[in-house]
Design a protein around this nucleic acid. Structure first.
Ligand SMILES: [Zn+2]
Ligand SMILES: [Zn+2]
Ligand SMILES: [Zn+2]
Ligand SMILES: [Zn+2]
Lengths: 132, 132
DNA sequence: CTTTGGTATGTTATAACATAACATTAAATA
DNA sequence: TATTTAATGTTATGTTATAACATACCAAAG
């Protein structure tokens, strides 16, 4: 890799697909969207995703086995991110503020635990869908 | 189903496997442990798991694609459960107290969201493994 | 320049996780 | 007994993820 701010060709293609809309996509959905650009195999997607996640540019949603572009400048500096996922419209809200990091650090302290990776995901109905 | 407190034969077998130790098991690990009891296909496991999860007797760990017996009387009455999972010894701590439910309800309020399912999972190193 | 070593990419095969669709059995109830 | 409901069995398939190996590319060292 040249540096953390430049993307390789495949990484940029995957980033572009995820950047187009604020909705989660599975690796295989990404693969299908990129067949026209020469992608043939899952690994091309998974390798790019691994890098992008490492850079903090993409998040993995564990409860969906799917991926989404980060919509913050950087989630890396915070203590964690919570994802609020509407089951109806698929829209995802990304929350990373003090309430999240305080909750996580409190939980770690209470359980005498050193957390290296966290996942907070809520499923339900968003405000827009509730009104509609 | 007879009622919520009785288990079918397959449900009891799956519950027994999960009840033996406080560690997560994948559906296919459970299947393999139950081949001697006549299990042949994944669906036998998945169907039992679905019921047991519905009863609150088993939890699904989204970040592991695995399942674990609930170690509380009932998590159902609370606002949510957090799982603290050691990457080294595989031990899982289950936390469902006010701090969890307050965090979740606060997050839902802040995002104007009606949550129907939540998942909080921390990965890292537990106290015992840290000392060792 | 050319060798060497690192990084990215390509390809095939397979592992791991999950469900659809349909058949059969067993138990409840009318 | 006839009807129907819940549980189970079976086969096939769909979906997600990684292992293992091969190739291409490019930059620095010799
Ligand atoms: Zn983010
Ligand atoms: Zn919505
Ligand atoms: Zn529980
Ligand atoms: Zn441990």
């Amino acid at each position: 890799m040249t540096n953390n701010f430049e993307l390789s060709n495949n990484e940029r293609l995957v980033m572009d697909v995820l950047g187009r809309e604020n909705s989660p996509k599975s690796a295989y959905m990404i693969l299908d969207e990129l067949r026209g650009s020469g992608f043939r195999a899952p690994l091309q997607v998974y390798r790019a995703l691994e890098k992008l996640i490492g850079m903090g540019r993409v998040h993995r949603l564990e409860s969906l086995n799917a991926f989404i572009a980060c919509n913050h400048i950087s989630c890396e500096k915070t203590g964690g991110t919570a994802f609020v996922i509407c089951n109806r419209c698929e829209h995802v809200q990304e929350v990373c503020d003090d309430s999240v990091s305080l909750f996580l650090s409190g939980l770690a302290k209470k359980t005498k635990f050193k957390a290296s990776k966290t996942s907070i995901e809520l499923h339900g109905i968003c405000d827009a869908c509730e009104d509609a």
